[in-house]
Design a protein around this nucleic acid. Structure first.
Lengths: 353, 353
DNA sequence: CTGAAAGCGCTAACAT
DNA sequence: ATGTTAGCGCTTTCAG
């Protein structure tokens, strides 16, 4: 049915060996140009496309990158990462084997990861990407079946390549935006889940606050159990009660920020005239759709996917021992219209108490 | 390094053939149970995992399903489809080869599709899923290299299996919700792009409106160029001007509905007391985060992914000729809090003009 | 510069 | 019930 290398060789009147050399671009100086041209013609005429199984069997390695997803596909976030990874892989003639390691709840258990790693090994993948849908620490089996790079995850007990968002840098940038506008009574709405991002963004808040001498009333921070819009809404209600001087609030995520907007809308607090708001994630569906548009920090999904694949292929194709490379990428500040200078009258009014 | 079948056979003191039979579950009545057990033991002890390349070469088909994505990964929408497809495939011992056919702009050109189909053919995929990120018509090459199922897309010139959302049914349900609440002055905010969904949802609007004798003032519909929140916002402004009797509005998508909310918030129009709003898509990030929550229709991403894979595997593994199967799935009404009865006072006031 | 041949690991037809 | 054997299509070493 489909043409094989043998068919091509027959038609070009050369040996399979010569045909193989030519078509895999290793003919340089080994095959006469005229012969090579004949082979290429024959291949084109027959619509020859090769057989990956045969090649992989022979080479003991498939031109495949295993993408072990830990919940990536279940969230709206990271499609861009997938897309970037796929196209970076394609550029180097690799394809992506997509495997989801279970549901969001049990994804990322060491057992689930180990099992799926074995599955990838069966496929003879040349390299592995382990991608989380949020920045976290992972426990990995001691032996990995192929070179591996972590995306939006890190692993303290392995010397392994990873890439994560620059939480601290990003949060700092967006908070500096608030400082620049002149705010000194800034609220921090966050959740209590113990992720690296929680710690790093909160640290950024504390550092920026200290640097600019922001009002350090402990009631400026409100912690919630989860991180959705409803929590943001409830948190904003509380913040307004317990820290009425507030002129600006930073929310842990755009989703929470959306809840903050809702609370403001309901109370007739105008954004940004009466209240400046910033988020994190650049969840476009939300940040762009809100009025006014939300000033926030982008998550570097696309960059992470691209970097990870580039690094992985480097590792696969390089003979020597590259050291480990662990990077934090800042997705960049996205300035929209949710930040303005605090209303002087309001600030004075609160200051007077 | 890794154990091969031969190693297992050696250790179990049987032939490779017997070992193969046992490990691929075809030993039924061909191998003594004691022998089979010995083989399984040996395999377990050696951590035998098989080699897919060898198997695929021999079988002339890989346990792979090619997922040709037309923009799916670039949008937040369809991660659920991917996840459902992957897990359905896994249940039948297939894995997913993920290929994105270019950027959102050029994805879906017949050339891009044809080229990527060839790529999948090289991989010996047993079946192909072509998935679009929005309901549309596709032009496909005449010859497909393997059994194929379309997801969220259809192809008028092929007798091919496909699954799409039930646009008409879904829109009808959500509009009936408005009718049930007693609305008669209902606005329709839609865009002008020529997709199947545009036609079908609009048709549903017209039919429901006719059925319930809604005010058929042509100014009740506002058409925009695109379909984002900003368009929804602008459209709502216009609707309020040109059709002031309006007590409820149906938006083509949740994103547009979000713009409608924003317009209401700015004008102090309370939802749902003064204005009922419904959307389409159940874009959870938006529909759940808005206050009040948006009543809308879910897109059956998960169901489509699952159905498509099930159907595809049926086709691959069934000997006889199954007919074509083309289905529309209704993702279901999601009732939240954006619909209430129209305010009598307001209706009278407008009626009085 | 070109061809012959071995063999990657597995499956399935055939022989015992 | 079990073993032998012939490839699947390709790459690569070695002879010519």
């Amino acid at each position: 049915m489909t043409a094989t290398l043998k068919d091509v060789a027959l038609r070009a009147e050369v040996s399979v060996a010569a045909a193989s050399l030519v078509l895999s671009g290793k003919a340089e100086g080994r095959v006469a140009e005229a012969t090579a041209e004949r082979v290429r013609m024959a291949a084109a005429e027959l619509g020859y496309r090769g057989n990956r199984a045969a090649r992989s069997l022979r080479r003991q390695s498939a031109p495949l990158l295993g993408l072990l997803s830990l919940g990536v596909a279940t969230l709206p976030y990271a499609g861009a990462m997938l897309e970037a990874a796929q196209s970076a892989a394609r550029e180097h003639d690799y394809d992506l084997l997509f495997i989801e390691a279970g549901t969001p709840e049990d994804a990322g258990t060491p057992e689930a990861i180990a099992e799926n790693l074995l599955l990838l090994q069966e496929h003879q993948v040349a390299g592995i990407l382990i991608a989380s849908y949020f920045h976290r620490e992972l426990a990995l089996p001691a032996r990995l079946p192929a070179p591996t790079v972590l995306v939006d995850a890190l692993c303290p007990d392995h010397d392994i390549d990873w890439v994560v968002p620059d939480e601290y840098g990003g949060e700092t940038e967006v908070l500096e935006e608030l400082a620049r506008a002149g705010h000194r009574h800034v609220g921090w709405i966050c959740h209590t889940m113990r992720y690296p991002a929680t710690r790093l963004r909160t640290k950024a808040f504390e550092d920026v606050a200290a640097r600019h001498g922001w009002d350090d009333d402990p009631r400026r921070v409100v912690l919630t159990e989860n991180a959705d819009a409803a929590d943001g809404y409830a948190a904003m209600q509380r913040l307004l009660e317990q820290f009425p001087k507030v002129t600006a609030v930073a929310a842990f995520t755009d989703r929470m920020a959306m809840g903050v907007y809702m609370a403001c809308f309901e109370r007739g607090i105008r954004v940004p005239q009466d209240m400046s708001i910033v988020g994190f994630d650049d969840q476009v569906l939300v940040s762009e759709a809100l009025r006014p548009g939300l000033t926030t920090v982008a998550l570097p999904h696309r960059q992470m996917g691209k970097w990870a694949v580039g690094r992985l292929i480097e590792r696969i194709e390089s003979a020597e021992d590259l050291g480990v490379s662990q990077v934090r990428i800042n997705g960049g500040l996205v300035v929209r219209d949710s930040v303005a200078a605090p209303r002087t009258g309001r600030v004075r009014a609160s200051a007077r108490r």
